[in-house]
Amino acid sequence: MTDQKPIIVVKDLYKYFGEIKAVDGVSMDIEQGKVVVVIGPSGSGKSTLLRCINHLEEPTSGEIWIDGEKLTHAAKQINEIRAEIGMVFQLFNLFPHLSVLENVTLAQKVIRGRSQDEANQIAMEKLKRVGIPEKADAYPSNLSGGQQQRVAIARALAMDPKIMLFDEPTSALDPEMIKEVLDVMLDLAQEGMTMVCVSHEMGFVRSAADEVVFMDFGKIVEHTTPEGLFNNPQNDRTKLFLSQILEH
Protein backbone atom coordinates (compact mmCIF):
# COMPACT_ATOMS: atom_id res chain seq x y z
CA MET A 1 0.00 0.00 0.00
CA THR A 2 2.95 2.31 0.58
CA ASP A 3 3.94 2.80 -3.05
CA GLN A 4 0.36 3.57 -4.09
CA LYS A 5 -0.22 6.66 -6.18
CA PRO A 6 -1.97 9.46 -4.28
CA ILE A 7 -5.60 9.97 -5.32
CA ILE A 8 -5.55 13.65 -4.33
CA VAL A 9 -2.53 15.86 -4.94
CA VAL A 10 -2.54 19.48 -3.85
CA LYS A 11 0.47 21.49 -5.02
CA ASP A 12 1.29 25.06 -3.97
CA LEU A 13 -2.34 25.99 -3.58
CA TYR A 14 -3.21 29.63 -2.97
CA LYS A 15 -6.69 31.08 -2.58
CA TYR A 16 -7.15 34.78 -1.91
CA PHE A 17 -10.41 36.54 -1.19
CA GLY A 18 -9.33 40.06 -2.08
CA GLU A 19 -6.62 40.83 0.47
CA ILE A 20 -7.38 37.83 2.65
CA LYS A 21 -5.15 34.84 2.11
CA ALA A 22 -7.55 32.00 2.92
CA VAL A 23 -5.21 29.29 1.67
CA ASP A 24 -1.62 30.42 1.63
CA GLY A 25 0.59 27.87 -0.11
CA VAL A 26 -0.66 24.39 0.74
CA SER A 27 0.75 21.16 -0.64
CA MET A 28 -0.30 17.66 0.34
CA ASP A 29 -0.81 14.17 -1.06
CA ILE A 30 -3.64 11.91 0.00
CA GLU A 31 -3.48 8.22 -0.81
CA GLN A 32 -6.43 6.09 -1.73
CA GLY A 33 -8.35 4.68 1.22
CA LYS A 34 -6.88 7.13 3.70
CA VAL A 35 -8.96 9.15 6.12
CA VAL A 36 -7.52 12.62 6.56
CA VAL A 37 -8.95 15.01 9.13
CA VAL A 38 -8.19 18.71 8.79
CA ILE A 39 -8.33 20.68 12.03
CA GLY A 40 -7.52 24.23 12.97
CA PRO A 41 -8.98 27.44 14.38
CA SER A 42 -11.89 29.09 12.55
CA GLY A 43 -10.69 31.17 9.64
CA SER A 44 -7.60 29.01 9.21
CA GLY A 45 -8.60 28.09 5.64
CA LYS A 46 -9.51 24.45 6.21
CA SER A 47 -12.98 24.70 4.64
CA THR A 48 -11.61 26.72 1.73
CA LEU A 49 -8.95 24.06 1.13
CA LEU A 50 -11.65 21.38 1.08
CA ARG A 51 -13.83 23.43 -1.27
CA CYS A 52 -10.89 23.95 -3.62
CA ILE A 53 -10.50 20.18 -3.97
CA ASN A 54 -13.82 19.92 -5.84
CA HIS A 55 -13.52 23.41 -7.28
CA LEU A 56 -16.45 24.94 -5.39
CA GLU A 57 -13.82 27.61 -4.84
CA GLU A 58 -11.60 28.41 -7.79
CA PRO A 59 -7.98 28.44 -6.61
CA THR A 60 -6.07 31.65 -7.18
CA SER A 61 -3.03 29.59 -8.15
CA GLY A 62 -1.60 26.12 -7.67
CA GLU A 63 -2.49 22.67 -8.91
CA ILE A 64 -4.97 20.04 -7.86
CA TRP A 65 -4.81 16.53 -9.23
CA ILE A 66 -7.63 14.05 -8.71
CA ASP A 67 -6.90 10.41 -9.50
CA GLY A 68 -4.07 11.37 -11.87
CA GLU A 69 -6.03 14.10 -13.64
CA LYS A 70 -5.12 17.75 -13.29
CA LEU A 71 -8.05 20.07 -12.65
CA THR A 72 -8.40 22.86 -15.19
CA HIS A 73 -11.04 25.57 -15.36
CA ALA A 74 -12.97 23.70 -18.08
CA ALA A 75 -16.56 23.38 -16.89
CA LYS A 76 -17.09 19.95 -18.44
CA GLN A 77 -14.08 18.43 -16.71
CA ILE A 78 -14.98 20.03 -13.40
CA ASN A 79 -18.51 18.60 -13.59
CA GLU A 80 -17.17 15.12 -14.37
CA ILE A 81 -14.66 15.25 -11.52
CA ARG A 82 -17.26 16.51 -9.06
CA ALA A 83 -19.47 13.50 -9.82
CA GLU A 84 -16.61 11.35 -8.48
CA ILE A 85 -16.22 13.40 -5.31
CA GLY A 86 -19.04 13.32 -2.79
CA MET A 87 -19.42 16.34 -0.56
CA VAL A 88 -21.24 16.69 2.75
CA PHE A 89 -21.94 20.20 4.02
CA GLN A 90 -22.23 21.69 7.47
CA LEU A 91 -25.84 22.76 6.82
CA PHE A 92 -26.78 19.52 4.97
CA ASN A 93 -28.12 21.42 1.93
CA LEU A 94 -30.77 18.83 1.12
CA PHE A 95 -33.17 19.88 -1.62
CA PRO A 96 -36.29 20.90 0.35
CA HIS A 97 -38.70 20.56 -2.59
CA LEU A 98 -37.81 16.90 -3.10
CA SER A 99 -38.54 13.87 -0.92
CA VAL A 100 -35.66 12.00 0.68
CA LEU A 101 -35.76 9.39 -2.08
CA GLU A 102 -35.85 12.05 -4.80
CA ASN A 103 -32.92 13.82 -3.16
CA VAL A 104 -30.88 10.65 -3.46
CA THR A 105 -32.02 9.73 -6.99
CA LEU A 106 -31.86 13.13 -8.75
CA ALA A 107 -28.17 13.24 -9.63
CA GLN A 108 -28.09 9.50 -10.35
CA LYS A 109 -30.68 10.03 -13.07
CA VAL A 110 -29.36 13.34 -14.42
CA ILE A 111 -25.63 12.60 -14.29
CA ARG A 112 -25.27 8.82 -14.24
CA GLY A 113 -28.19 8.29 -16.61
CA ARG A 114 -29.72 5.59 -14.43
CA SER A 115 -33.33 4.58 -14.87
CA GLN A 116 -35.89 5.49 -12.21
CA ASP A 117 -36.02 1.87 -10.97
CA GLU A 118 -32.27 1.48 -10.82
CA ALA A 119 -31.81 4.85 -9.11
CA ASN A 120 -34.53 4.00 -6.58
CA GLN A 121 -32.92 0.68 -5.81
CA ILE A 122 -29.48 2.20 -5.28
CA ALA A 123 -31.00 5.02 -3.22
CA MET A 124 -32.75 2.55 -0.92
CA GLU A 125 -29.49 0.63 -0.56
CA LYS A 126 -27.67 3.80 0.53
CA LEU A 127 -30.51 4.89 2.82
CA LYS A 128 -30.33 1.49 4.52
CA ARG A 129 -26.63 1.95 4.89
CA VAL A 130 -27.09 5.26 6.73
CA GLY A 131 -29.89 3.70 8.76
CA ILE A 132 -33.02 5.55 7.64
CA PRO A 133 -34.73 3.62 4.81
CA GLU A 134 -38.08 4.26 6.50
CA LYS A 135 -37.78 7.99 5.79
CA ALA A 136 -37.59 7.57 2.01
CA ASP A 137 -40.91 9.29 1.39
CA ALA A 138 -40.47 12.03 4.00
CA TYR A 139 -39.45 15.57 3.15
CA PRO A 140 -36.24 17.09 4.55
CA SER A 141 -38.16 19.60 6.69
CA ASN A 142 -39.70 16.70 8.63
CA LEU A 143 -36.34 15.19 9.56
CA SER A 144 -34.03 15.94 12.48
CA GLY A 145 -30.63 17.45 11.77
CA GLY A 146 -28.90 14.13 12.23
CA GLN A 147 -31.30 12.40 9.86
CA GLN A 148 -30.88 15.16 7.28
CA GLN A 149 -27.12 14.83 7.42
CA ARG A 150 -27.36 11.07 6.97
CA VAL A 151 -29.58 11.59 3.92
CA ALA A 152 -26.96 14.03 2.61
CA ILE A 153 -24.33 11.32 3.02
CA ALA A 154 -26.57 8.81 1.22
CA ARG A 155 -27.13 11.33 -1.58
CA ALA A 156 -23.37 11.66 -2.06
CA LEU A 157 -22.76 7.90 -1.82
CA ALA A 158 -25.40 7.13 -4.45
CA MET A 159 -23.05 8.61 -7.05
CA ASP A 160 -20.46 5.93 -6.17
CA PRO A 161 -17.77 8.52 -5.42
CA LYS A 162 -14.09 7.69 -5.15
CA ILE A 163 -13.57 10.40 -2.55
CA MET A 164 -15.80 11.88 0.14
CA LEU A 165 -15.34 15.40 1.47
CA PHE A 166 -16.91 16.36 4.81
CA ASP A 167 -17.12 20.05 5.65
CA GLU A 168 -17.79 20.25 9.40
CA PRO A 169 -20.57 17.65 9.10
CA THR A 170 -21.48 17.67 12.80
CA SER A 171 -21.02 21.37 13.68
CA ALA A 172 -24.67 22.28 13.15
CA LEU A 173 -26.03 19.26 15.03
CA ASP A 174 -27.40 18.89 18.53
CA PRO A 175 -25.04 16.82 20.70
CA GLU A 176 -27.28 13.74 20.78
CA MET A 177 -27.32 13.60 16.98
CA ILE A 178 -23.59 13.88 16.44
CA LYS A 179 -23.03 10.21 17.20
CA GLU A 180 -25.43 8.88 14.56
CA VAL A 181 -23.59 10.86 11.88
CA LEU A 182 -20.13 9.94 13.16
CA ASP A 183 -21.13 6.26 13.22
CA VAL A 184 -21.96 6.42 9.53
CA MET A 185 -18.66 8.16 8.80
CA LEU A 186 -16.77 5.60 10.86
CA ASP A 187 -18.46 2.84 8.93
CA LEU A 188 -17.40 4.45 5.65
CA ALA A 189 -13.83 4.83 6.86
CA GLN A 190 -13.64 1.17 7.80
CA GLU A 191 -14.85 0.17 4.35
CA GLY A 192 -11.88 1.93 2.84
CA MET A 193 -13.43 5.12 1.47
CA THR A 194 -10.96 7.93 0.86
CA MET A 195 -12.16 10.72 3.11
CA VAL A 196 -11.11 14.29 3.78
CA CYS A 197 -12.92 15.73 6.76
CA VAL A 198 -12.88 19.17 8.28
CA SER A 199 -13.97 18.34 11.80
CA HIS A 200 -13.18 18.93 15.42
CA GLU A 201 -14.55 15.61 16.62
CA MET A 202 -11.46 14.33 18.37
CA GLY A 203 -13.15 11.00 19.05
CA PHE A 204 -13.47 10.52 15.31
CA VAL A 205 -9.84 11.56 14.81
CA ARG A 206 -8.76 8.97 17.35
CA SER A 207 -10.84 6.10 16.03
CA ALA A 208 -10.88 6.66 12.27
CA ALA A 209 -8.21 9.07 11.06
CA ASP A 210 -5.05 7.88 9.34
CA GLU A 211 -3.61 11.37 9.12
CA VAL A 212 -4.30 14.71 10.73
CA VAL A 213 -3.56 18.07 9.16
CA PHE A 214 -3.40 21.09 11.43
CA MET A 215 -3.92 24.41 9.63
CA ASP A 216 -3.46 27.95 10.84
CA PHE A 217 -3.47 31.23 8.88
CA GLY A 218 -3.95 29.38 5.59
CA LYS A 219 -0.87 27.19 6.04
CA ILE A 220 -0.37 23.58 7.04
CA VAL A 221 1.38 23.80 10.39
CA GLU A 222 1.54 20.10 11.07
CA HIS A 223 0.75 16.99 9.03
CA THR A 224 0.92 13.95 11.27
CA THR A 225 -0.81 10.82 12.58
CA PRO A 226 -3.44 10.89 15.34
CA GLU A 227 -0.89 9.41 17.75
CA GLY A 228 1.59 12.07 16.78
CA LEU A 229 -1.01 14.77 17.28
CA PHE A 230 -2.21 13.70 20.71
CA ASN A 231 1.04 12.38 22.18
CA ASN A 232 3.70 14.44 20.56
CA PRO A 233 2.55 17.67 18.91
CA GLN A 234 5.57 19.43 17.42
CA ASN A 235 4.34 22.96 16.96
CA ASP A 236 3.43 25.39 19.72
CA ARG A 237 0.30 26.54 17.93
CA THR A 238 -0.86 22.95 17.61
CA LYS A 239 -0.29 22.43 21.32
CA LEU A 240 -2.21 25.58 22.19
CA PHE A 241 -5.10 24.65 19.91
CA LEU A 242 -5.28 21.12 21.29
CA SER A 243 -5.24 22.33 24.86
CA GLN A 244 -8.12 24.67 24.03
CA ILE A 245 -10.39 22.09 22.43
CA LEU A 246 -9.49 19.18 24.72
CA GLU A 247 -9.95 21.14 27.93
CA HIS A 248 -13.73 21.05 28.21
Binding site: A75, N79, F89, L106, V110
Partner: peptide, 28 residues
Protein backbone atom coordinates in the same frame (compact mmCIF):
# COMPACT_ATOMS: atom_id res chain seq x y z
CA UNK B 1 -26.20 29.53 -1.95
CA UNK B 2 -25.85 26.07 -0.43
CA UNK B 3 -28.50 24.68 -2.76
CA UNK B 4 -26.50 25.55 -5.86
CA UNK B 5 -23.32 24.26 -4.21
CA UNK B 6 -24.93 20.96 -3.26
CA UNK B 7 -26.24 20.49 -6.80
CA UNK B 8 -22.88 21.40 -8.35
CA UNK B 9 -21.00 19.14 -5.94
CA UNK B 10 -23.03 16.20 -7.27
CA UNK B 11 -21.67 16.94 -10.75
CA UNK B 12 -24.60 18.85 -12.17
CA UNK B 13 -23.89 21.69 -14.57
CA UNK B 14 -25.09 25.23 -13.90
CA UNK B 15 -28.05 24.68 -16.22
CA UNK B 16 -29.00 21.34 -14.67
CA UNK B 17 -28.73 22.79 -11.16
CA UNK B 18 -30.99 25.68 -12.18
CA UNK B 19 -33.53 23.40 -13.81
CA UNK B 20 -33.79 20.68 -11.17
CA UNK B 21 -32.89 22.45 -7.93
CA UNK B 22 -33.03 26.24 -8.02
CA UNK B 23 -35.94 27.11 -10.34
CA UNK B 24 -38.51 24.70 -8.84
CA UNK B 25 -37.93 26.33 -5.45
CA UNK B 26 -37.65 29.88 -6.80
CA UNK B 27 -40.82 29.69 -8.87
CA UNK B 28 -42.77 28.28 -5.95
Amino acid sequence: KGQMEAARSLGMSYGQSMRYVILPQAIR
